[in-house]
């Protein structure tokens, strides 16, 4: 499973360089941990959100791609997240930057 994360926007508007994690290169425990975090966050079921939501400002926008076998799913999500599992996944992926 190959995961990429790109963060943009925010008050400071300093984009975070894209983070890429290939779980096949990780030790088994670590790979399992990352892959289960992806499943917990149910990334495959997430629909993209509109970038401009009324009445908010300075929120980070995350572009998350999950590439597994022949499937590739990209989703753009804006903070805050209704599901805390998504925040956990983003923190985990950010730790590889």
């Amino acid at each position: 499973m190959i995961l990429t994360l790109y963060r943009s926007g925010g008050f400071a508007a300093v984009a975070q360089p894209e983070v890429s994690v290939d779980t096949s290169t990780l030790p088994k425990d670590e790979a399992d941990h990352v892959e289960s975090a992806v499943r917990e966050a149910r990334v495959a079921e997430l629909a993209g959100q509109p970038a401009a939501v009324p009445g908010a400002g300075d929120r980070f926008v995350y572009e998350l791609t999950v590439h597994e076998g022949n499937t590739r799913h990209t989703v753009k999500v804006t903070e805050p997240f209704a599901d805390p599992a998504l925040g956990t996944l983003i923190d985990l992926l950010s730790s590889y930057s």
Partner: peptide, 25 residues
């Protein structure tokens, strides 16, 4: 809010402030 979080935002209902990462912010 968050860990080493480099941002402050308004979510439509309230203000949210991070601690910064300490290296840049």
């Amino acid at each position: 809010y968050g860990r080493d979080y480099d941002n402050a935002f308004w979510d439509g209902q309230q203000m949210v402030f991070g601690d910064g990462d300490g290296t840049l912010f």
